[in-house]
Design a protein around this nucleic acid. Structure first.
Lengths: 217, 217
DNA sequence: AGACTCCTCCATTAATTTATGGAATAGTGT
DNA sequence: ACACTATTCCATAAATTAATGGAGGAGTCT
């Protein structure tokens, strides 16, 4: 009969790697582009050893790959299929776990921010109807953004309001469905009398949809 | 800031549930149709309490749902998205873990069995060119099979060779990519001088592809 | 070479998960 | 009500996983 367990154990290794909130936070960061261990640890609020350990687990599960440059080691998602898997996990969790809704509301704030779909955004971009703003950190913008989008990290938004047209509509986007930056940005913009809304998901889903991605400044 | 961790903890619950080989074996069985705890325990080689525990974990992660009938409780996958998730985990593992290849070869036997794609099978069915045989257990066939397929569980195959045409090509299929039954069936058929091949995946992938499924006898 | 940075490896402890057997519960049939 | 079946709940022991601090490795700079 051969060893069925070994096969399922291998599949389970992938599941196990995905079975820890810290590791998923790392996945979320890596889905935006490659990073060094140091940066990842800082961004995820982890100790260096802890972060390194978690990254090893992800690597052994085949979910991330590495590249060495000088003394730094850069981690990245191992492939498009991994990004898809991460997106699907979130989708399944959202569809079947009430907890996700609660946690989302607590984290992202009241669901009062106006949203727009990718299709709608594409249409309005074609019509020249909106200003698109990428509110993620600078490096993530550099690693890939929606063509035509301006880079204004959310913590610089207040100082750079002047760069946005006074009378048009602004659409802010960030990492993905569960990223706070765009929510905060839209609230800030509304508070300053601008017309603003949020892309309902973000860069992760944009990439997975196969839409064009710009990587220059 | 709100509590980001709670959100990722919820996602991780799904990952955790998928992070155990026994539970994945249960998923594999449930992907073929609903079953009672007793049957599941027997089929997966688990103690009754163990199986029940694992099923609770899957249920709390929102991956399976239950239905009570008399004294029995039937479990099933919670939705199509869950089946997709299961398929994607296997795909990612196969793509990035060398271990999967090794375990697969050890479990399914040498890769000498001739395979055919779904598209090819559909074409040959239309041409009336093949006899399609479902070699899964009877109940799984009843829960849904490829239209026109005969049900001959693999352990009955030797006794029922007469039901298959002597001179045509037989295509056997079973649960999915990593199911042994079809491999065994094809080897048996070849050993008896029939022309036989295997569908490269199985019922799981057939369903996910949105192809027609027959549920009568 | 020597000092320095970035990361990984190792060992320890605390926390979580798994398997198992016995008790409790929900539903059925007499 | 009683016996019976199918499942879940609970308690325990064994195994696995997670966080942390210190040692070691790889690469860079002077």
């Amino acid at each position: 009969m051969g060893d069925k367990t070994a096969l399922f154990e291998a599949f389970a290794q992938v599941g196990k790697a995905l079975g820890n909130a810290r590791r998923l936070e790392l996945m979320e960061l890596l889905a935006q582009g490659e990073r060094s261990v140091e940066i990842l640890a800082a961004a995820a609020g982890l100790g260096l050893t802890s972060a390194s350990n978690h990254l090893q687990v992800l690597r052994q599960a085949g979910l991330v790959a590495t590249r060495r440059q000088g003394t730094k080691v850069f981690y990245r998602l191992a492939g498009r299929d991994v990004a898809e898997l991460w997106a699907l996990i979130r989708q399944v969790a959202a569809a079947h776990l009430a907890e996700v809704d609660r946690a989302r509301a607590a984290y992202l704030g009241p669901g009062d921010v106006e949203q727009i779909t990718r299709a709608e955004l594409l249409r309005r971009i074609r019509d020249g109807d909106v200003t698109v703003v990428d509110v993620r950190p600078r490096e993530e913008y550099a690693a890939g953004h929606i063509p035509g989008a301006l880079s204004i990290p959310v913590d610089e938004l207040l100082d750079r309001l002047a760069e946005l047209p006074e009378d048009g509509t602004v659409v802010a986007y960030c990492r993905g469905t569960y990223c706070v930056f765009a929510h905060e940005a839209v609230r800030t913009l509304l508070a300053h009398g601008r017309r603003a809304m949020r892309l309902e998901d973000g860069m992760l889903e944009w990439r997975l949809a196969g839409l064009p991605v710009a990587t220059a400044a």
